[in-house]
Design a protein around this nucleic acid. Structure first.
Lengths: 149, 149
DNA sequence: ACTAACTGTAACTATGGTTGTTCCAGTTGG
DNA sequence: CCAACTGGAACAACCATAGTTACAGTTAGT
């Protein structure tokens, strides 16, 4: 199946909020415009980031979303864990037969191995911060459209 | 979303075939019985393993499936790559807006990071062989139901 | 040659999660 | 009081998976 695109949306939104030194206050409509998506979809994802204390939301007129921490302090792992629940690698849809040695014990082994594999994936995601992403995003623009003095 | 359970089915089937030193010849019906599932589902997964040269199939009466290599030579990574195509971590459902710096460049950065994270996951899966799984499966049975002399 | 036992594959259903959308209640600032 | 937000429910469209049935093709044994 593959994991949902929520993580990509989350990193995208966090990167937007990280501009200007992290002091940006943006509405879900503004973020949705950059994503070419829907404000409700954005609020769904940002709601999870808020539950994980990665962003803060303020209601009412003039409200919106802003980072809860500095862009250097938030990693892709934080974003991933905030929006994606449950294991990536699935065990059997059905529990296997208990009248077979393999059926009785394979799920325990698989759970250990899959957990270790996912830990490795998250560990790698934890090495990159939103600040890293932002600087590379900006560098990409400088490469393709060099600016004069 | 999470990844399909095909990898769990594949490892289960490979472990069954690895018994008896790897010389087992099993039918899809026998494997399906251990999985408490359907022979067609099993053949779908084992078909991918065969395309990846992990198992061999023989048609006709007396036919079935057997390992193409020794259980020590096949890792969970091999099984995973054989049955699971495409990236685990998805980029945006839509391409983002090109009129925004982040929208223009974030997908490239995400692709690099996600690829690295998935590589880390597969690397970890590559450290465990089917022989490892089999021995742990058998050990699990010895623990819970100790046998006399 | 016939039959039984397999694989290989197409077609179909049911299910569940995600995405996108509309709608409305609640909150806030001017 | 109004305009601009968030919060959240409800719903449709879509897609992959898991499971099932059905059938064609292949092989071994008699």
């Amino acid at each position: 199946m593959g994991v949902s695109s929520r993580c990509a949306v989350a990193v995208h939104a966090l990167t937007l909020l990280a501009r200007d030194g992290g002091g940006q206050l943006l509405t879900s409509a503004e973020i949705a415009e950059s994503l070419d998506s829907n404000p409700v979809v954005v609020r769904r994802v940002l709601g999870r980031l808020r539950d994980a204390s990665l962003v803060l939301s303020s209601e009412g007129s003039g409200g919106g979303w802003r980072l809860a921490h500095s862009p250097q302090a938030v990693t892709l792992r934080d974003a991933y864990c905030a929006v994606e629940e449950g294991p990536v690698l699935s065990l059997h849809a059905h529990p296997p037969s208990t009248s077979c040695v393999v059926g009785r014990n394979v799920q325990g082994v698989l759970e250990e191995e899959f957990t270790a594999a996912e830990w490795a994936m998250r560990e790698r995601l934890g090495r990159t911060t939103i600040a890293d992403v932002l600087s590379r995003v900006l560098a990409g623009d400088r490469q393709s459209t060099p600016q004069g003095p």
